[in-house]
Simulated assay, not measured.
Amino acid sequence: MYLGGVDGVELFLLGRTLMKIGEEALPDPPGGSARYAGSARTVLIVASDIAARQDTTVGEIAARTGLPQSQVSTAVARLKEAGSVQTAPDPADRRRMLVRPNPEVSPRVAQVRDAGVDDALATALGSDDPRRLAEVTEALEVLARHLAPARSGPSA
């Protein structure tokens, strides 16, 4: 099915553009480290997967996301350090750890969630025209309402 003049390639490229805008909107990483690199995308992918599923394992996350288990383990460690997730032994197999979103919002998670996107959108649009920003923001809100994972989960 072909909708409204947007094909699969255009949708894919739009998704990449939206990811770049999202990265620009994120607050600087803690500890003065360099701006987000590819590893940050991995952390966000893992965080999104954890948000969608309670009590999951690193192996299950790796299987669902297609990421190497070592990268998932590193991402989970970063999310745990940021206070985004909690881990606990699996009661069925105490050798495995279960990962779940932290029910309490850490200061870092609050900072990431509170980061506005207006400046990043204006930069991407090449304009700070309030009408254009409002139109794009409204479109993003519609997409988020219909397609985004639950917001209650972890953020990096």
Rank of each mutant, 00 (worst) to 15 (best):
L44W: 12
L44P: 01
L44V: 03
L44E: 11
I45W: 05
I45S: 07
V46C: 06
V46N: 08
A47N: 08
A47D: 08
A47L: 10
S48I: 01
S48Q: 13
D49W: 02
D49Q: 11
D49N: 10
I50W: 09
I50H: 08
A51N: 02
A51Q: 02
A51D: 06
A51W: 04
A52S: 05
R53S: 05
Q54D: 10
D55S: 03
D55M: 00
D55E: 07
D55W: 00
T56R: 09
T56K: 09
T56F: 09
T56E: 04
T56V: 15
T57W: 10
T57L: 11
T57R: 14
T57H: 12
V58P: 00
V58C: 05
V58M: 01
V58Y: 04
V58I: 11
G59F: 03
G59E: 14
E60N: 08
E60H: 07
E60R: 14
I61N: 08
I61M: 09
I61S: 10
A62D: 13
A62M: 13
A62P: 13
A62R: 13
A63N: 12
R64A: 15
R64E: 12
R64Y: 09
R64Q: 12
R64P: 06
T65M: 08
T65K: 05
T65H: 06
T65A: 05
G66P: 01
L67A: 02
L67G: 01
P68M: 05
P68H: 14
P68T: 02
Q69V: 12
Q69H: 09
Q69Y: 04
Q69A: 12
S70K: 07
Q71E: 15
Q71K: 14
V72Y: 07
V72C: 07
S73A: 14
S73E: 14
S73Q: 12
T74K: 15
T74V: 11
A75V: 09
A75R: 07
V76I: 15
V76W: 12
V76P: 12
A77I: 01
A77Q: 06
A77M: 02
R78A: 11
R78S: 08
R78G: 01
R78C: 03
L79K: 07
L79W: 06
L79G: 06
L79R: 06
L79M: 10
L79I: 06
K80R: 10
E81Y: 10
A82V: 08
A82L: 14
A82S: 15
